[in-house]
Design a protein around this nucleic acid. Sequence first.
DNA 1: GTTTGTGAATAGTTTCACAGCA
DNA 2: TGCTGTGAAACTATTCACAAAC
Lengths: 207, 207
Amino acid sequence: MRYHKIPDETVRRLPIYLRGALHLSQQGVKGVSSQKLAGLLGVNSWQIRKDFSYFGDFGTPGVGYDTSTLIKHINRILNLDTVHKVALVGAGNLGSALLAFPGFEIYGFEIVAAFDSDKRKVGKKNSGVTVKDISDLCVLKDHGISMGIIAVPGDAAQDITDRLVNAGVRGILNFSPRYVVVPKRVKVITIDIAMDLARLPYYLPAG
Amino acid sequence: MRYHKIPDETVRRLPIYLRGALHLSQQGVKGVSSQKLAGLLGVNSWQIRKDFSYFGDFGTPGVGYDTSTLIKHINRILNLDTVHKVALVGAGNLGSALLAFPGFEIYGFEIVAAFDSDKRKVGKKNSGVTVKDISDLCVLKDHGISMGIIAVPGDAAQDITDRLVNAGVRGILNFSPRYVVVPKRVKVITIDIAMDLARLPYYLPAG
DNA sequence: GTTTGTGAATAGTTTCACAGCA
DNA sequence: TGCTGTGAAACTATTCACAAAC
């Protein structure tokens, strides 16, 4: 079923499947059924098959999926088959943790630049990246950086967003607790850590 | 429309509305319309009204919503009207950033205990919290701690989850890139930072 | 005139069940 | 026999449009 609009929810799940396939591949597992993959990732097997069906035939009936083929396909669909250079803004506690974060690598992300407005942080090395002043953000264009991570306090978020957009960034991962306005061509994904914790008590039985 | 099952998506959005109401309240704004709130938060006004309608009448036609009433109502619905004590497991880069994170406070969360398996970290103070050995996790019950945050590498995630569940925790915020198995009574919310970044390139126009 | 609250219409997503292939 | 791929059905959520309330 190749000629369909891809549901957003399917796109959201593809990185999960990729993570599972990479995990299995690292362990030397060559093939996997939708059922096995589902068990590993905590989703349903028919959901996996349905999601894959939007893109064509990934697997072999009676056998399952080849892990390396799966990785190749999902990487291509998600545009992850080239290394993506990322700029980080905000070298505070969260920003430093993100610079040291080992999880970006498997998807081909590399944080190649870091910025902060605090003069005391500027010039210092942080996980191998030298922190630059925020006014140097405009140089991003010349370095092939198309994505930015915002790890600044809420009050600064819109200003930093504008600077990133002006610097040519087309995708933003926003860790600040604010809605930020961008032109339609720019995609923002917001992770509001406290907000996710905030809905947890709703699900706890009385207490 | 009081006698309806609440959509999960509505529950997911309630903390957003709460954040907006708190923001306005701090600025001394007493009343707000669904339209104004929507503009502030980047959602639709009818979505807000629809979401609120599941819980009863929050506002006044022709006038709007009273910010402090809104805060009170949402806090009660989300079970946020008491302080929640939280245990953090994993005092590495991410764990330390979470201990120092200022955003939990507005929702009434307090990280009162931290644990790590690394003997070099145990005993040290980290943002005012003394890191304890992981084997001391079982004391949680006696301290009224009902929620846990997992900030450990993937390989350790299931073990830590089991320990938290055994210690009586009923809600878990999981930052590890793994699906973890829990009894049905326990709710897990997973934030996989790299995964969220991983779907960003999909939305970037060719390049 | 303004804004809420909500039934009804639309859109989107998940689940099922099974034909077809290895 | 075992597993994929997918239409169709069931379910869930979003959007609209407007009556009722202030």
